[in-house]
Amino acid sequence: MRAYLAGPEVFLPNAREVLDRKIALARSYGFMPVSPGDLTVPETETKYQRGLAISAINESLMSSADLIIANLTPFRGVSADVGTVFELGFMCARGCPAFAFSNATENHFERVSTFYRSDVHLGADGRHRGPDGMALENFDMTENLMLDGGIATRNGAIVTRKVAPDQLFLDLTAFEECLKLAAKRLLKPAVGA
């Protein structure tokens, strides 16, 4: 099975090294990894055209994959990387099995409450609201309910693990746990095994 490996690791200064580690782990569990870091982007005249080319290549890679394993570790804020979220939605819309991991154990509500510096109150409607009046999702889910729901509906799982802040995008322990779960649920054992 071809596993699309989604996540913000492509932005790391040592992206190739981390992606190669993820690729090797995916292979060791019996998957054929498909990684956005493996794309070759054609020369373009503008930055905008380059962005469109990368997007088209990523969509082509996702269309060639059978499942997704997405890194939902909060990236540049309280939620997962928006590109990874798009990729997860794309694969869920295709009906593919979906698995995810996060190197943060706080749920979505806890992270948003921290963002608001705990200035969260119960509104007259019974919903938690921030100082801006906006309601907070409070469903004891790792991420936005659409992400958790999409993964659960496709018989996937989200693995969370607390790691040191400097290891958020380097520690692959939760990723490997995802691979174990995906292999157990999706790959048939070899004959005679």
Rank of each mutant, 00 (worst) to 15 (best):
Ala3Asp: 07
Leu5Asp: 05
Pro8Glu: 09
Val10Thr: 11
Phe11Lys: 01
Leu12Asp: 00
Pro13Ala: 09
Glu17Asn: 04
Arg21Ser: 15
Arg21His: 14
Lys22Ser: 02
Ile23Gln: 01
Ile23Tyr: 03
Ile23Val: 07
Ala24Gln: 09
Leu25Glu: 04
Ser28Lys: 13
Ser28Thr: 11
Tyr29His: 10
Pro36His: 11
Asp38Trp: 06
Asp38Lys: 08
Tyr48Glu: 13
Gln49Phe: 04
Leu52Gln: 15
Ala53Thr: 06
Ala53Leu: 06
Ala56Arg: 15
Ile57Tyr: 09
Asn58Leu: 02
Asn58Thr: 02
Asn58Cys: 11
Glu59Pro: 03
Glu59Phe: 14
Glu59Gln: 15
Leu61Asp: 05
Leu61Gln: 11
Met62Lys: 14
Ser63Ala: 14
Ser63Thr: 10
Ser63Arg: 14
Ser63Val: 00
Ser64Val: 06
Asp66Thr: 06
Asp66Ser: 13
Ile69Thr: 02
Ile69Phe: 03
Ile69Val: 14
Ile69Ala: 09
Ala70Pro: 05
Pro74Gln: 08
Phe75Asp: 00
Ala80His: 00
Ala80Asp: 00
Asp81Phe: 05
Val82Ala: 12
Val85Tyr: 15
Met91Ile: 08
Met91Val: 08
Ala93Arg: 13
Cys96Lys: 15
Cys96Pro: 03
Pro97Gln: 07
Ala100Asn: 03
Phe101Leu: 00
Glu106Ile: 03
Glu106Phe: 06
Phe109Leu: 04
Val112Ala: 07
Ser113Phe: 07
Tyr116Arg: 04
Arg117Lys: 15
Arg117Cys: 09
Arg117Ile: 08
Ser118Ala: 13
His121Ile: 12
Leu122Asp: 12
Gly123Val: 02
Asp125Gln: 01
Arg129Val: 14
Ala135Tyr: 14
Ala135Glu: 14
Leu136His: 01
Leu136Met: 01
Glu137Asn: 00
Glu137Leu: 00
Glu137Tyr: 01
Asp140Trp: 00
Met141Glu: 10
Met141Gln: 13
Glu143Cys: 03
Leu145Trp: 05
Leu145Met: 12
Met146Ala: 03
Met146Ser: 02
Met146Asn: 02
Met146Thr: 00
Leu147Glu: 04
Leu147Asn: 04
Leu147Tyr: 05
Asp148Glu: 13
Gly149Trp: 09
Gly150Arg: 03
Gly150Thr: 03
Ala152Cys: 03
Ala157His: 06
Val159Pro: 04
Thr160Gln: 14
Thr160Met: 09
Arg161Lys: 10
Ala164Val: 05
Pro165Asp: 13
Gln167Asp: 14
Leu168Arg: 11
Asp171Glu: 06
Leu172Arg: 09
Leu172Gly: 09
Ala174Val: 02
Phe175Glu: 01
Glu176Gly: 01
Glu176Leu: 00
Leu179Val: 05
Leu179Ile: 04
Lys180Asp: 10
Ala183Pro: 07
Lys184Gly: 10
Arg185Tyr: 04
Leu186Asp: 02
Leu187Pro: 09
Ala190Gln: 15
Val191Glu: 13
Ala193Pro: 00
